[in-house]
């Protein structure tokens, strides 16, 4: 096991999959000469050349569609969005083209491609650069959506996404790229749609994904000091959703907190809450509590931004409420 960064884990996944399959190429803004806006594609241009590591103009709708077209005729594109905020300009291609082509064509054209890039807020980037898009994307039949929280999962999920014959959205985290973690030396895959119990406990379940996994783990550390132990269910994939993992945990702990980075209204947490009330109605000792970003655009001012985010103190408070401790 090597200890590497989340960034390097993604880089390894790209390199290995490009070596393994000549149909795989990487396309996006600054992925080549600049080596990636966040250096995820470092060294790939040098290794694979300009045809397979393609710098694009700032033309999100255009190059997302180029990926769809290339996928329709047999290539396996990896389309990098500098951040998912900019992917909004490309949503027509993601939603109307990539997600629907298989269905509209009666099964003739599947779209084996990956859309990837950082999702959610970093620090003080303001309203337009600080948004979490998973509920938008996961809403769409035909798309798969994953959000790795650790280097191990980042590498394994990206590899699985590239091999999948459907369009997969990989939501990375700007604040995660420098994080380090253990990654096996040999080849491995993290299957799509399989959650991971990142921590075992008895008193409550926190369901989360992506960068909030770290928040949940930190909250669980704190709560442990008061003797409260937590199951942290890291979904890893939002769609397909590992319903079994959520149900099993909540049936054991009888209390459920859903922690997500994005907004409250119609967030992924609402979907999970629906599942829990349906499947675990008789198991629940308290209502499901959701921890989300404040229902407002992200502010710039430090204090306001902190107040807006779904952070560790809010998560701890939610667990304590679920346990009727406060």
């Amino acid at each position: 096991m090597a200890i590497i960064t989340y960034r390097d884990a993604l880089n390894q996944a790209l390199r290995e999959e490009m070596q393994r399959d000549a149909r795989v190429f990487l396309m996006g803004e600054e992925v080549g000469v600049y080596q990636g806006a966040y250096k995820v594609s470092k060294g790939l241009l040098q290794e694979f050349g300009e045809m397979r590591v393609v710098d694009t103009p700032i033309t999100e709708l255009g190059f997302a569609g180029v990926g769809v077209g290339a996928a329709m005729v047999g290539l396996r594109p990896v389309i990098e969005f500098m951040t998912w905020n900019f992917a909004l300009l490309a949503l027509d291609q993601v939603v109307n083209a990539a997600a629907k082509m298989l269905y509209m064509s009666g099964g003739q054209f599947n779209i084996p491609m990956v859309f990837r890039g950082p999702n959610g807020a970093a620090l003080q980037l303001g309203a337009q650069h600080s948004q979490a898009w998973e509920s938008w994307l996961a809403h769409i039949p035909g798309l798969k959506v994953v959000a790795p929280g650790t280097p191990y999962d980042a590498k394994g999920l990206l590899k699985a996404a590239i091999r999948d014959d459907n369009p997969v959205c990989v939501l990375e985290g700007e604040m995660l790229y420098n994080n380090k973690g253990e990654v096996p030396d040999g080849e491995y895959i993290v299957p799509l749609g399989v959650a991971d119990l990142k921590r075992k406990g008895e008193h409550a379940t926190i369901v989360t994904w992506g960068k909030q996994v770290l928040v949940a783990m930190a909250a669980a550390d704190q709560l442990a000091k008061d003797g409260i132990t937590i199951d942290v269910v890291d979904l890893r994939s939002i769609r397909p959703l590992d319903e079994r993992a959520i149900i099993d945990s909540v049936r054991k702990t009888n209390r459920c907190v859903v922690l997500e980075e994005g907004w409250y209204f119609a967030g992924v947490g609402a979907q999970i809450t629906d599942l829990v009330q349906r499947e675990c109605f008789d198991d629940l000792d308290s209502p499901v509590i959701r921890v989300t970003q404040a229902d407002a655009p992200m502010p710039y001012a430090k204090g306001l931004e902190k107040a807006a985010k779904a952070d560790m103190p809010k998560t701890i408070a939610a667990v304590r409420r679920a346990l009727y401790l406060d």
């Binding site: 709708l61 255009g62 190059f63 997302a64 569609g65 180029v66 990926g67 769809v68 077209g69 290339a70 996928a71 329709m72 005729v73 047999g74 290539l75 594109p77 027509d92 291609q93 109307n96 083209a97």
Partner: peptide, 12 residues
């Protein structure tokens, strides 16, 4: 919407 897709086929 299909113009970028056509461009992608050309790319392929």
């Amino acid at each position: 919407g299909h113009l970028p897709i056509a461009t992608g086929v050309g790319f392929a």
